[in-house]
Design a protein around this nucleic acid. Structure first.
Length: 735
DNA sequence: GACCTGCTGCGGCGTG
């Protein structure tokens, strides 16, 4: 594909099928050829009405693969009113990016393109509603707002919609937001009384059959899949091990943080890089260290923090620097820089500490090595503590290192975590019940059940469960819904209050926050849960500050520059690790193979972990007595199952610590094997026992309106696998 | 022992 655009265009039959204005746009861009996925998508989208998933790395030409033929079809056979094409994107920034690209392309064809999200002015939205044509680019939440506020206009606005393009499909699969979007897709089709073609754009997906079923549940087999063949790019990986000393101070040049920062400083300076630090606190810690290293060497700073609590101003500044190849920039970041928005070519991706999922690691790595001929480079940094007689099992087994190795191995094998099709999503179900009632101005329970649970995405919710959810949210203390004498469901007092406020449209929870202000300028926000007092010093935005004042009423924290500081507490929940990762960790404990990507220290840590594994007897049996008393129980299960068994044991009076694939259990009156035998023979643990054992089950936005039983049922369908308890206990005893 | 995402209508004021 190195020919000039003349000959390649002439030789491409697909190119010839595009509408003239689209061909002219390609011509102006001086593309040497169409990408392979573009060539293949053109006939598929022009000759059929089939659903399609296109997978390719970031900037692999996915958007054009979908829109070049789709726009051509609109030009060749214009619609009669209503948006011709709808694009759903999970980020406002992504919609703004795509708007820029598509507007230029559609200008030549006299098709309007309307961006629609929270930052778009009411006047643009008004124009779009008055003359709905061309392309609508919208977030799931803004589409939700259209259903709630303009339910009756939906058939008119989307009358001629021939395709819905869903960008970053992998980010909108089985999480609450993905279920929300799929519910809206079903409701749109039902409102129009016809099927609308669905096209999903995505990075690599863990399970293509499941992804197809998510895109089109009733005809998954008929969904086509086009995959970019340019995926065979070279990958360079190094995993560097670090050993933390016992009594060193943070500022010491032998501290792990100093040594990792020093390595990043020396290896990454001079180019554009991303370093994922794992938490906002770690981002601040490393940004501050790296900035000071630049200052100490009298070099201009090129290391900047990027995470969701920093102001939009600061984040845009970092993103703009990343795009400008003349200004070497390394962003120390969280998953804010994982998705979508184009930040250009990145030389290297750093990862401090093992990530939580292979999917995230793969997505991050997709940011590197995008220019032909350059490999993708991943530098992973893992630290382990010095082991002493008092060390716990986790340190001795080198669990962090083994998790990092498992993640890299799975990445190299091109595997990643599949979705969880068994989750009920009751919080989002409550949201959608309220939304359907608002859309229609009232609806019979049977019709709502049909919309959401028969045709829509809540198919694991049967009639009995649906009825108990309705009874619960119609209860006297809740009053989200009420029933009219003719049986039609209406919004109750509580439901009206929820739906009337703009915060209703998103299905996910968001914490209350303080604004952090320095000299009148907002640096960002901190969660209210953080304990912040006047006089405390913090690192924020990569710089050091002293808290001058806390205004609780306005939720403002005033700060002034200072010479010292530590990252403030940012809050956060424990992460979920999939069974697949834990199983691979176990394989690595049992193996003698030494991965080539380990440095010397990582190799030594690997050998120490394997030695400890044998010394504890974990190669022999799953239950072992721990050196300081109590037991080690090897579950070799991911977080959902591991946490469930931990709770079942806590409910029986045991003190339990969760580790990757293991439980550390302190001695109790009951013997552990006897307790496991009882759990193996019993039905899943009762909610009341779990709550007494300290389980926090409320995790989603609308859980607060559900009963303990319904919340427990929801949790156990996704994050806490209670049903697996008995089988897991039996398997442990049998080993 | 964690990360991220999203948002309408309306009143008031200043400007062209």
């Amino acid at each position: 594909m190195t020919t000039s655009h003349h000959s390649s265009s002439d030789s491409s039959r697909a190119f010839g099928r595009l509408a003239t204005p689209v061909q002219r746009w390609i011509w102006d861009k001086e593309w040497s050829a169409l990408h392979d996925i573009q060539e293949r998508a053109i006939p598929l989208l022009l000759d059929t009405d089939d659903d399609l998933i296109i997978t390719a790395a970031t900037a692999g030409g996915k958007t054009e693969a979908a829109f070049l033929p789709l726009i051509s079809s609109v030009i060749q056979a214009p619609g009669a009113g209503g948006f011709d094409l709808v694009y759903i994107g999970p980020l406002r920034a992504l919609i703004t990016d795509q708007f820029g690209r598509l507007e230029e392309l559609c200008e030549k064809a006299d098709l309007p393109v309307y961006p629609w999200h929270g930052d778009i002015s009411a006047s643009v939205k008004k124009r779009a509603r008055a003359d709905p044509r061309g392309i609508l680019l919208i977030t799931p939440e803004s589409l939700e707002a259209l259903f709630v506020l303009r339910g009756l206009e939906i058939p008119r606005l989307f009358a001629s919609t021939r395709c819905i393009v869903i960008d970053e499909l992998h980010a909108l699969l089985d999480n609450e937001r993905g279920i929300h979007m799929r519910s809206l897709l079903t409701r749109l089709e039902m409102s129009l009384g016809r099927r609308v073609r669905r096209v999903g754009l995505s990075a690599t997906l863990g399970d293509m059959d499941l992804a197809k079923a998510y895109l089109r549940p009733d005809a998954a087999d008929a969904v086509h899949h086009l995959d970019s063949i340019s995926d065979g790019k070279e990958l360079l990986v190094q995993l560097r091990g670090y050993r933390a000393g016992s009594n060193e101070g943070d500022e010491s040049k032998t501290s792990v943080e100093f040594r990792i920062a020093r390595h990043i400083f020396e290896k990454l300076r001079g180019e554009q890089n991303l370093v994922f630090a794992g938490s906002r606190g770690a981002v601040e810690e490393y940004s501050d260290r790296l900035r000071r290293m630049c200052e100490a060497d009298r070099l201009p700073n090129e290391f900047y923090p990027h995470h969701a609590s920093l102001s939009r101003d600061h984040r845009s500044f970092v993103e703009t620097r990343l795009k400008d190849a003349r200004l070497p920039t390394t962003a120390i970041c969280t998953s804010t820089l994982e998705l979508g928005i184009d930040i250009g070519e990145v030389a290297c991706v750093g990862q401090i500490g093992a990530p939580w999922s292979v999917a995230a690691l793969r997505q991050r790595l997709g940011r590197s090595g995008r220019r032909a001929g350059r490999p993708a480079v991943l530098r992973m940094y893992v630290s382990e503590r010095e082991v002493s007689a008092k060390s716990g099992v986790a340190d001795a087994l080198r669990l962090s290192l083994f998790r990092a190795v498992a993640m890299i191995d799975l990445l190299i094998d091109k595997r990643c975590e599949p979705p969880q099709p068994q989750a009920l999503h009751l919080s989002t179900l409550v949201h959608q019940i309220l939304s359907v009632i608002a859309e229609k101005g009232g609806a019979p329970a049977g019709a709502i059940y049909d919309t959401l649970c028969v045709r829509g995405p809540f198919r694991l919710v049967d009639k009995a469960l649906f009825a108990s959810v309705l009874r619960q949210i119609g209860g006297p203390d809740v009053e989200l819904v009420e029933q009219a004498p003719d049986g039609v469901l209406l919004l109750g007092r509580g439901g009206e209050r929820l739906v009337e406020h703009y915060s209703f449209y998103a299905v996910f929870q968001s914490p209350e926050e303080y604004r952090v202000v320095a000299g009148g300028k907002t640096l960002g926000t901190l969660p209210v849960v953080a304990v912040l007092a006047v006089g405390m010093t913090i690192i924020f935005g990569g710089r050091r500050w002293r808290i001058k004042d806390v205004h609780d009423r306005d939720k403002v924290i005033e700060v002034t520059p200072d010479a010292t500081g530590r990252p403030p507490p940012f809050g956060g929940d424990a992460g979920l690790i999939h069974d697949m990762v834990i199983k691979r960790m176990r394989q690595n404990y049992l193996s003698d193979a030494v991965p080539v990507y380990l440095d010397g220290e990582a190799k030594r840590l690997l050998a120490e972990g394997r030695a400890a594994f044998k010394q504890f007897g974990l190669d022999q049996a799953a239950i072992q007595t721990a050196p300081e008393g109590g037991w080690i129980v090897a579950t070799w299960a991911g977080t959902a199952q591991n946490a469930a068994l931990a709770l079942a044991l806590k409910a029986r009076g045991f003190d339990v610590e969760q580790r990757d694939g293991l439980l550390e259990v302190a001695s109790a009156e009951e013997s552990l094997p006897a307790a496991l035998a009882a759990i193996a023979a019993a039905p899943p643990p009762d909610v009341r026992d779990l709550l007494k054992a300290g389980a926090t089950l409320i995790s989603e936005k609308f859980h607060e309106h559900l009963s303990d039983e319904l919340i427990a049922l929801d949790a156990s369908s996704a994050k806490l696998d209670l049903a697996a308890c008995a089988g897991l206990a039996a398997a442990i005893l049998a080993e």
